[in-house]
Design a protein around this nucleic acid. Sequence first.
DNA 1: TTACCTTTGACAAAATTAGTCAACACAAAA
DNA 2: TTTTGTGTTGACTAATTTTGTCAAAGGTAA
Lengths: 98, 98
Amino acid sequence: MSTVGLKLRELREKSGFSLRKAAVAIDIDMAILSKMERGERKFSKELVLKLAKLYNTDSNELIIGFLSEKVIYELADEEFGIEALKVAEKIIKYKKIQ
Amino acid sequence: MSTVGLKLRELREKSGFSLRKAAVAIDIDMAILSKMERGERKFSKELVLKLAKLYNTDSNELIIGFLSEKVIYELADEEFGIEALKVAEKIIKYKKIQ
DNA sequence: TTACCTTTGACAAAATTAGTCAACACAAAA
DNA sequence: TTTTGTGTTGACTAATTTTGTCAAAGGTAA
């Protein structure tokens, strides 16, 4: 169960960026990026997109991971998390047709 | 696609509570309950539970609706909302076994 | 040592969310 | 026609959460 942070750290290292340089490139404080990669802070969608671009990677999978983490966070240890997801899915699908 | 607010308003009316009395019973300002029922403000889980109890109703379905609304809110108009839900579901199911 | 790299925590700033309150509108009863 | 009870609205403040800044410190390698 790899996180978006983990993936983005791997991508950064593969791309040869130091934390400092990547942070400068997307215009945030290095401390924040460090915390985001380690899951101590949440990414914003905007930053995920910027980093995907910086690392020359397709962003779709990263965004999906990012969004799913947000959802999981909301449902934390909810007893009816799965049921809620099912309902949400139905509604979203319904909305799409309209 | 009825919302939790709508359901709770119906339940309140069926139970014969005025907005004021229901609000007093769960110890919040009437204005807030009014806005929540109409979807202008988000419920908290705690309040949903209190209201379910007040109206003598099973809370499970209400909670599922409440949670799914939170999820939908997070995914707003995301292109990959459905995909994110699928990933989230897998991860949550996986977590449950552990 | 010097030069990087990264982590950590304290702190401040900004933004979001929650709560309070009074004014208003409406309808029905006294 | 006042009074009473209903619900809505918006302005305002308070509280909480999120976000950003910064400096100190611990590694590692040249």
